[in-house]
Design a protein around this nucleic acid. Sequence first.
DNA 1: TGAATCAGCACCAGTTTAGTGCTATTTCGT
DNA 2: ACGAAATAGCACTAAACTGGTGCTGATTCA
Lengths: 158, 158
Amino acid sequence: MLKLTKRTEYGLIALVHLADQAAAAPEGTLAEVVSARAIGDQFPIPRRLLAESLKALQAGGLVDSTRGSQGGYRLARAAESISLGEIVTVLEGAPSLTSCAGLGAASAGGGCDVEPVCPIRSPLARLRSGIWALLEGVSLQALADRSVNPVALFSAAS
Amino acid sequence: MLKLTKRTEYGLIALVHLADQAAAAPEGTLAEVVSARAIGDQFPIPRRLLAESLKALQAGGLVDSTRGSQGGYRLARAAESISLGEIVTVLEGAPSLTSCAGLGAASAGGGCDVEPVCPIRSPLARLRSGIWALLEGVSLQALADRSVNPVALFSAAS
DNA sequence: TGAATCAGCACCAGTTTAGTGCTATTTCGT
DNA sequence: ACGAAATAGCACTAAACTGGTGCTGATTCA
């Protein structure tokens, strides 16, 4: 199914929220941490699942967490440096692009070493590779910027 | 999961094959029909499922079918006029990105008839909308053209 | 007639998804 | 010290989806 899971949706909601928070922080200072509860209260979504997504984002190193009372989350890096592809990878695992697996940069060594332009590559692999490249090209920053329209989101990326 | 189902993969394989067939046909003539068996014999995939995909494509009006011995399938329209979005819609159902559904401050039942540029649209809806627009912009023709690289497949579309 | 081929249902096992329960641990405020 | 707030971790369930198959019927060509 060519669609994002709820887990990813909630995670994105949270990330956009955290990006807003970071943008609102005074120059050069760290943004205040935001609790899962605080984020959840602003959207009609199961708070608990939102928390699950945040946990996953923490495990994936996209956000930093502070425990205890007054604890919460904060972006671990600048919103411009977090790509959509990375977010999706963290939240729903590396996409299983079948054989010739792992396109893009990551793909650990094994097999198909003629990576760049493998002529045997099926249209499917090319398609997925294209979609993936797009996701890698869109930053959280762009996503959080509400002035950009959906299509420009991508076409501007290339 | 941001990935295509096998059903869609097989369908795409078949469509690309049919597009090749159409391209090989003499100017102005209809391409010969190709049976599911004939297509399946060329790929290491379960023949039966390929047939299922073809059936779905027929039901969706993307291919014409001829029954009986010597029967088979043929593109119902020119490959340039069949978009990837349409193919995916036929093979795995309409994506739920429609109608401001899902979340976003304004989701509520009613209407959101200001569809074009709804300012309240959530980042998620915008994201899906963007992905969708991309798929709509890629034609089967482009997909079948093996000389185009994966990334150009999309960036050229905008 | 008979074989090839598409069409329509209906079924099953395995995986994924969404969502919840419960407990432990850390930290702040009093 | 204590309790509340909050993250961390594990485990579990019900529903949906996926991949794949079985079977029967209808249509067409030879």
